[in-house]
Each structure stands twice: as structure tokens, then as C-alpha cells.
């Protein structure tokens, strides 16, 4: 039960803090913001990698490997492309 409570607190607090922080992001950074949060949403890579911490039969192994690959694509691609975009914003 206490686990559930902790999870609820984490969820609510993160949503609220995220809301406050992100409301202040200017419009010109909205695309990089979305691209970066997109990468953060692939934090499911944590869950995907943790699947390999327990015994898996072959079909489950394949699915877990697919999950790792998909999340990695999102996470690495997201941060890389965000960095590239932000590098283009210049002041003369």
C-alpha cells in the first residue's frame, strides 16, 4: 500500500512541477521542447532493460529486445535531433 502511495506522490509532484516549468517555455523553443520530452518519454527503456533481469523464455526475449530497440531509437534519436535543432538557433 505504501508503494502505491509513493508512486501517486511521485506522479502528482512530477506532473505539477513539470507543468510549472514547461508553461514558461517560449514559443520559439516549442519544437525542441517536444522533441526532447519525446526522448524523455522513452525512459521506458529503463523498464525494457529491466525485463532482462529475470528469466525469459524465447518469445518474451524477442519482445523484450524489440522494446529495448524501439525505446533506444526514441531516446537516442530524440536527444540527438534536439541538440542539432538547438545548435541552429543563433544570434548574430
Amino acid at each position: 500500500m505504501s508503494d502505491l502511495l509513493v508512486m501517486l506522490v511521485v506522479f502528482t509532484a512530477s506532473s505539477a512541477i513539470g507543468y510549472v516549468m514547461i508553461s514558461k517555455v517560449p514559443q520559439r523553443l516549442h519544437t525542441p521542447l517536444m522533441s526532447m520530452t519525446n526522448a524523455i518519454s522513452a525512459s521506458t527503456i529503463i523498464a525494457a532493460l529491466l525485463l532482462f533481469s529475470s528469466k525469459l523464455d524465447s518469445p518474451h526475449k524477442v519482445l523484450a529486445a524489440a522494446a529495448v530497440a524501439l525505446a533506444a531509437f526514441n531516446v537516442i534519436g530524440g536527444f540527438t535531433v534536439t541538440g542539432r535543432m538547438l545548435k541552429m538557433f543563433k544570434k548574430q
Binding site: 511521485v10 512530477s14 506532473s15 505539477a16 513539470g18 520530452t37 519525446n38 524523455i40 525512459s43
Partner: peptide
């Protein structure tokens, strides 16, 4: 936490 922040955004 990561998921909640992204959902907010």
C-alpha cells in the same frame, strides 16, 4: 516521474 513530466508538457 519522467512519464508524468512528458505528459504535462
Amino acid at each position: 516521474a519522467c512519464g508524468a513530466v512528458v505528459a504535462s508538457s
